[in-house]
Design a protein around this nucleic acid. Sequence first.
DNA 1: GTCTATAGTTCGATAGAC
DNA 2: GTCTATCGAACTATAGAC
Lengths: 226, 226
Amino acid sequence: MAEAAQRRVQHAEQRGTRRDAQEAILDAAEQVFAENGFHGATTRAIADQAGANAALIHYYFGSKEALFETVFARRAGAINAERRARLATLRAQGQPSLEQVLDALLRPTVALGHDPTRGGAHYARLVAHVAQGTDARSRRLTGDSYDAIARRFIEEIAAAVPGLDRVQAVHAYLNTIAIGIALMAPTGRAQALMAPCPAPSETLDEGLARSVRFIAAGIRALAAPD
Amino acid sequence: MAEAAQRRVQHAEQRGTRRDAQEAILDAAEQVFAENGFHGATTRAIADQAGANAALIHYYFGSKEALFETVFARRAGAINAERRARLATLRAQGQPSLEQVLDALLRPTVALGHDPTRGGAHYARLVAHVAQGTDARSRRLTGDSYDAIARRFIEEIAAAVPGLDRVQAVHAYLNTIAIGIALMAPTGRAQALMAPCPAPSETLDEGLARSVRFIAAGIRALAAPD
DNA sequence: GTCTATAGTTCGATAGAC
DNA sequence: GTCTATCGAACTATAGAC
């Protein structure tokens, strides 16, 4: 059949120029899961997006569930490694300011959302989805990938703000993440609410600086006696 | 068949003491949609939760999609009416403070999450889910139910904080809602991060006051020249 | 490794008895 | 209005050719 033959040729061409099918599936899954959630995504849609076959997903990952958890955990290590590296650089110069700590926490994830070339934006939306989930799997995945880094930053926040106790530092961290998650999910709400005025275009640094300023003032208000 | 007869008797008993089947379905749908999202929820699970039949959902609402939109819009009117009433009460006493405006915005929804008796908490989780969604339906539902009230509160925030321009007021509102949404979704993250120390129990007023203090300081920092 | 074909299940929705 | 029964479609996952 000419149709199948053409598909084979096309596929052979891709094999040389493109990355592994396994990685293509992970990238495609990142996008489809981010757009539709776990239940709304189908293995067929992921396979189509990857230019692969649905059966390959089970060959490589065993199940849709295992694929989802692999996708979620894949970038977490890199994000948290960058956060730790930024903290280490700051610590080498003495006690970092609260603003510096918050920038180290938020920048690696917010930068993903602004990544124009690759799928980091999809992961950002996926994290936003899972972090807000109340089901058992969402809690487990969030805890496994982000509990350790959370505790580290809670300590750093407490160290950067005299008079902030542990309970307040936990809330400071959670408020920071809440705003960070909202920044990552491109709901188009800011543009909608500024209409009919055009929303001013904003660089990553400008948006991040505004959020850091907002959060830092909020955290210091938690520590102030009144 | 005795089994069917018994079910009919049971049902007849319920008819007197319980509310309409239609309302029971809405309450059940609120819970099941909140726990599993739109795609993860099934009409059968909703019907079981409501003690009704799956066919009734289509009889009353036409489709799963229409049921979802009905559930989402049901409480929005009441929430926003309460917000407007609180604003009116404040306005009758002169220009309200930023803290008073933020309390009027957050309290009606956060109070839902603390409702111990019935399904307000489920709606809170549902709103959190939809507000973070990036798909077309989530954007439309959010806009239809919450755009008008958002613009009203953006004006109030700007009026309460001298020097805050419109763009900054929009971001102030969005940051407020981001923290409000995080407050509504009981992810158990605060308890997890405070472990092994026991999380101090907190009343609605205490938690709300802390969030308002945090947000108000953040918003004022947006208006400050440096 | 990658494909086609399909098994087995579950879904949303409908028809029709009562 | 509310039920039972069921349809057709879509899903995850697997079997087996290549």
